[in-house]
Amino acid sequence: MDDISSKYLTQMIERDHIYSVLELAGHLPYAVRDVINEASRLGYSFDNIMQDPNKVMIDKK
């Protein structure tokens, strides 16, 4: 994921409080798995990570 998309991802999580990985991927030109990988690299944790990737939520902690 490029730097601009990574910053936008962080902004959507922190400011806009979007926690659904599927919804986040809808705002970015990346697949759900790419969003999961980038969010993980940024230090976010997840709920439902072992289930359907489309249902993964970023932990709000």
Rank of each mutant, 00 (worst) to 15 (best):
D3S: 14
E38A: 15
D59R: 13
N37F: 05
M50H: 13
D3G: 05
V21R: 01
K61P: 09
K55A: 02
G26P: 07
Y30C: 07
E23T: 13
S6E: 13
A39I: 08
R15F: 08
K60C: 11
N48H: 13
E14A: 10
D34N: 14
D52V: 01
E23P: 00
Y19C: 03
Y8C: 02
D34E: 15
D47P: 01
L42Q: 15
D34Q: 15
F46L: 12
E14P: 02
N48G: 09
V56L: 00
L24T: 02
Y19F: 14
V56Q: 00
A39T: 10
I49L: 15
F46P: 14
R41C: 10
I58Y: 02
K7M: 12
Y19M: 05
K55V: 00
R33V: 05
K55S: 03
D34V: 05
E23I: 10
N37R: 15
M12W: 12
A31R: 14
K7F: 10
K55G: 04
P53R: 00
L24W: 01
K7H: 06
M12D: 06
I49V: 13
G26H: 04
Y19S: 05
L22E: 09
S6G: 09
M50I: 09
Q51K: 07
A25H: 01
M1T: 12
L9Y: 08
K61R: 14
F46A: 11
R33K: 10
V32H: 06
E23C: 01
H27D: 04
F46Y: 08
A39P: 09
N54T: 04
H27G: 03
N54L: 01
G43D: 14
Y19H: 12
S5N: 15
M1H: 06
L42M: 15
K7D: 14
I13D: 07
V32E: 04
H27V: 02
D2M: 03
I36C: 01
M1D: 03
M50F: 11
D34C: 12
F46R: 09
N48C: 08
K61W: 08
M57N: 03
H17S: 09
S45E: 15
Q11S: 13
S5F: 13
V35T: 02
D34M: 11
R41V: 12
I36F: 02
K55E: 06
A39E: 05
D3I: 12
P29W: 08
K61C: 10
I49D: 02
Q11T: 12
H17E: 13
H27E: 12
R41P: 01
Y44C: 11
E38C: 15
L28G: 02
L22S: 08
K60Y: 05
P29D: 13
M50V: 11
L22P: 00
A25G: 02
A39R: 03
I4D: 11
L24S: 02
K61G: 15
K7T: 09
S5K: 07
I49R: 14
E38F: 08
E14Q: 12
L28R: 02
L42P: 08
I4Y: 10
I36E: 01
N54H: 01
L28P: 06
S5M: 13
P29I: 06
R41K: 15
D2Y: 04
V35L: 03
G43P: 11
E23F: 01
Q11L: 10
G26S: 09
M57S: 03
D2L: 06
D2W: 04
D59E: 11
S20N: 07
L22F: 10
L42E: 14
N37P: 00
M12L: 15
I58R: 00
Y30K: 14
T10A: 11
